[in-house]
Amino acid sequence: MNRAVFLYVGVLLTVLLSFTGLVSIPEKQLGGLQPLVDADGTQYPVPPTGMVAEGRGVYIADGCIYCHSQQVRPEGFGDDIERGWGTRRTVARDHIYDSPPLLGTMRTGPDLANIAVRQPSENWHLLHLYNPRITSPGSNMPAFPFLFRKVPVEVQVPHDALSFPPGWEVPGYSVVPSRRAKALVAYLKSLDHSHPVPEVPQ
């Protein structure tokens, strides 16, 4: 045998080795994680269903992940907890039903792991999606007017029309969220990772 053995096997093994280390072993270690079931029978986490699952689809299709993370860093590493983005770090168990997990790598906007806790108002979310500058002056988030439709007020004022703060009304029209806007808000209002987990001591 000569050096060629080392070279050829090496080329292949290097990448197989990292595949084992970074993918296979974690799968073995984490793939079997189970949800928690409380004394009263409630389960955490729960798989997304219905409007929440639909809203997750909108979140993916419109690329929210490119500006918003969904992960809370541990105490003492960054100030995620001090900022009120969560009460504990997030762990692998939080994401067992997420395929793909939407952890994100960018915080042009704030973290959303616990946005449901921070911002429970449906109207706030809808206004914010319609035009982020209404609720958050100076924000550089894009508006999503295409998730809404405008109905002339003389035709009707639908029961689910947005209620604008003074100065932001659209004259002559009421603004009605589409099903996709409502689904996206349902998803955002499901983002709550405050449930205690054994991995993070209280």
Partner: peptide, 23 residues
């Protein structure tokens, strides 16, 4: 895919030994 890689590597290896590479 893993098998394909294996076969390619073994083929390359056999060929390399036979042709006396890297001298």
């Amino acid at each position: 895919v893993v098998a394909l890689f294996g076969v390619t590597a073994v083929y390359g290896l056999v060929w390399a030994i036979r042709s006396g590479q890297m001298r």
